[in-house]
Design a protein around this nucleic acid. Structure first.
Lengths: 350, 350
DNA sequence: TTGTAGGCGTTATCAG
DNA sequence: CTGATAACGCCTACAA
C-alpha cells in the first residue's frame, strides 16, 4: 500500500535506537523464540502460517540478529580471518577485494590483519583470529612454517596461497611462478635477446626462487648460458630495482634486456634506466612479473606476467567456504599469462 | 631458568585445543570469576595476593578472554568499523595501515568494509557494522549525506575524513585541497608557465571541486586568465588522464604544463604525452596530487602534493579512540606540502 | 511441528 | 575488597 512513510518502521532509516531482539519478534509473531530461530536459520521445517507471521514480524520490527550472541551460542561467527602481509600493496588489495566479493553474498565477513612479512606477527594474527572465533582462516603468502600452518588447521579450516600444502582441513592455492618466469624469459629470447639480466626477488620467498629457476631454465632450454654476472639481487621493492640497474650498468657487462622478478622492481629499474639515459625498449627491453594494476600505465606500458590477484582472492574465499561446508575444494589458479606491452621489443641487430 | 620447554604450556605454541574459560582460571586461582574479571579489566582494586594468583593461573592456563562473550555481556566489542571506498587503492591502503597501527596497541581491531563509492553500499556497510556491534565507525571519504552520517553518530561515535562536519559524537578530519591545488599551480606559475592545463577530478567529490578552485585561484592571483579550454574533465582514474591529454592535444590550444587533480590521472597523462611524443618535462611539465607511493618511481618522478594518507589513518583512529573515551579530539591534518621532483621544469622561453 | 529449559563466557549489580 | 546472581541475545537438545 502506498501509505506515507510511518514513523515506526525505523529499521531501513538506520537509527537503531532500540535493540530489537529475537524474543520480541517471537512475541509479535505469537510463537516461541526457538521457532523464530529455526525459521531464520532454516534449521527445521515449520508450518507455513508461522513462517509468514515471523517473516512479517521480523520485517516490521526491523530485526537483525546479534552476531555476538549467535557466535556465542551457536559456535559459528560467520566471519573468516584473513591474514595478509601488507594491506597496502596493489597486489594484496586486489586479492582482498576478491575475498570480500566472494564472502559477502554468502553472509560471511572477512576480518583482515596484516603480518608485515613477519612470522612472529603472523603467528600473533592467527592467535587473535582464533580468539575472535572466526570460522576459518585464509593466509595470503604465509611466512610461517608448513607445520605451524598445519597445526592451525587442526582446530580450524585454513586456506593458504603461494605454497603447496594439503591437509585435513587445509587447502592451498598456488601460482605457477616457474612457468611464468619461463614464459617471460622465453619472450625475451624470442625477440632475439641473449644478454638478459635478471633482477631476483627476495629469495626468502619460495616464489622468488621459483621465478629465478624459471628464468634459468628458459635460458638453458634455448642454449643460452646462465651468466651469474647478469643476475643481480633484488628485494621485491622499487628501490632494489633501481639499485640493481645501477649495479648492472656499473659492472660494464652488456645486456639488452632485463627481466625483473616483479613489477615493483621493474618500475624501479625503469627509473634507473631513465636516469642512465637508456631508453625502453629501444636500448633495453624490460619485462616484469605480477601485472600490477598500474603497470599498464607505466611509460612505456610494461610487458609482464599476469598474476590473477583478484581471482586468487575469490578462489581462496570460495575454497574456504567449501571447507566450512565440509566439501573438498578443487579450485586451481589459471596458468600464467604473458602480456606483451610496449616495454619489450626486438633486440637491435648489433 | 633454562629449563627445557615443558610440554604443558600449550598457549604460546598456538594449538587451542581446549577452550580455557575465565571460570577455570578462577577455580585454579582460588577466587571467584568476578574477581578474575576485575583483575583482567582493571575494573576495581584487588588485593595483591589474589592478583598474583590470578595472573599466574591465567598464564599457566593460557587463558584468552572470548571477545564474543565480552561483547555480549559488557556491551563493548573493542572493534571499530572502518568503511573505505576501495580496499585496493594505494591511497586507502596506506590509510588502513595507519588505522591498524594506531588501533592495535590499544587492543582494538579494525573491521574493514568497502563501499565502492556507492552511497547505498555505504549505508549497508554502516548497518552491518552496527549489527556487529562495533564500538565506533570511521568512514573514509563518505559519499553519504551529512545528515545520514550525523544520524549514525546518534548511536555510535563516528569519525569521517574528507569533509567538514562536527557533532556530538562526530569528528571530522579534512585535508586542505584548495591550498594544495593552489600551491601546485603556484609552483608551475613560478616556473614561468602560463598555459597550464588542468585535469579535473570527479567533481561529484567535494575535494575535486576544491582542487579545481585552488587551481583557478592561483591562476587569477597571478593575473593569469582562467581558460576553460585548458580545463578538461577527468574521473580520478588513469584512463581519464590519458583521454584528457588526447583531448588537449587534439584541440590545438597550446599548453606547456598540466596539473592533474590526482596522481592516478597524472600517470595516465604521462602515458598520453609519451604516446604523442611529448617529453616530460622538456615539452610539458606535469604535476599531480596525492603523492601515491609509486609516484616517486614514475619516469620521470612526479612532482606532486603530498597527501598524508598513513597519518590520516592514524589520526582518524586516534580521534575515534578519544571519542570512545569521552574526550574531544583535536587532531588536525598537516598543511599540504609540495614535492618538487623531475616532472616539472622551467617553461621554455619561446 | 513447536515450546521449554539450559547454557555459551563475560561483565555488572548487589549485597556482604 | 569480594562473592553470588543476574543478565547479554541466541541456539539446541529435550520433551510434548
Amino acid at each position: 500500500m502506498t501509505t506515507h512513510s510511518a514513523p515506526d518502521n525505523a529499521a531501513p532509516a538506520g537509527n537503531p535506537k532500540t535493540p530489537v531482539t529475537l524474543e520480541m519478534v517471537a512475541k509479535l509473531a505469537g510463537v516461541s523464540p526457538s521457532t523464530v530461530s529455526r525459521i531464520l536459520n532454516g534449521t527445521a521445517v515449520v508450518s507455513e502460517a508461522k513462517r509468514q507471521a515471523v517473516v512479517e514480524a521480523t520485517k516490521t520490527l526491523g530485526f537483525v540478529p546479534n552476531p555476538l550472541a549467535r557466535g556465542l551460542a551457536g559456535g559459528r561467527t560467520f566471519s573468516i580471518g584473513v591474514v595478509t602481509q601488507a594491506i597496502d600493496s596493489p597486489f594484496y588489495g586486489a586479492a582482498l577485494r576478491g575475498i570480500e566479493d566472494e564472502l559477502d553474498p554468502m553472509g560471511y565477513s572477512p576480518l583482515f590483519m596484516s603480518a608485515h612479512w613477519n612470522p612472529t606477527a603472523e603467528a600473533r594474527c592467527l592467535e587473535l583470529l582464533h580468539a575472535r572465533r572466526v570460522d576459518g582462516i585464509v593466509v595470503l603468502m604465509p611466512r610461517l612454517s608448513d607445520s605451524a600452518l598445519l597445526a592451525s588447521a587442526q582446530s580450524l579450516p585454513v586456506v593458504v596461497t603461494g605454497r603447496e600444502l594439503r591437509g585435513e582441513r587445509l587447502y592451498s592455492l598456488n601460482f605457477d611462478n616457474f612457468a611464468g618466469a619461463f614464459r617471460a624469459t622465453e619472450h625475451l629470447l624470442s625477440l632475439g635477446h641473449t644478454d638478459i639480466a635478471f633482477i631476483t626477488g627476495d629469495e626468502e620467498h619460495p616464489d622468488a626462487s621459483e621465478r629465478h629457476r624459471g628464468y634459468r631454465a628458459a635460458l638453458e632450454g634455448a642454449g643460452v648460458a646462465y651468466n651469474p654476472l647478469l643476475v643481480v639481487p633484488g628485494m621485491y621493492h622499487e628501490v632494489s630495482g633501481l639499485e640493481a640497474v645501477n649495479r648492472l650498468v656499473a659492472q660494464q657487462r652488456p645486456f639488452t634486456a632485463i627481466f625483473a622478478a616483479n613489477d615493483q622492481m621493474a618500475t624501479g629499474a625503469a627509473l634507473g634506466l631513465y636516469q642512465h639515459g637508456l631508453r625502453v625498449p629501444q636500448d633495453v627491453s624490460l619485462v616484469g612479473f605480477d601485472d600490477l594494476p598500474n603497470s599498464v600505465y607505466a611509460t612505456p606500458p610494461l610487458s609482464t606476467i599476469h598474476q590473477p590477484a583478484y581471482e586468487l582472492g575469490r578462489l581462496a574465499a570460495a575454497s574456504m567456504l567449501q571447507l566450512i561446508a565440509g566439501e573438498q575444494p578443487t579450485a586451481q589458479l589459471p596458468t600464467p599469462e604473458l602480456l606483451v606491452r610496449a616495454s619489450s621489443a626486438a633486440a637491435r641487430t648489433l
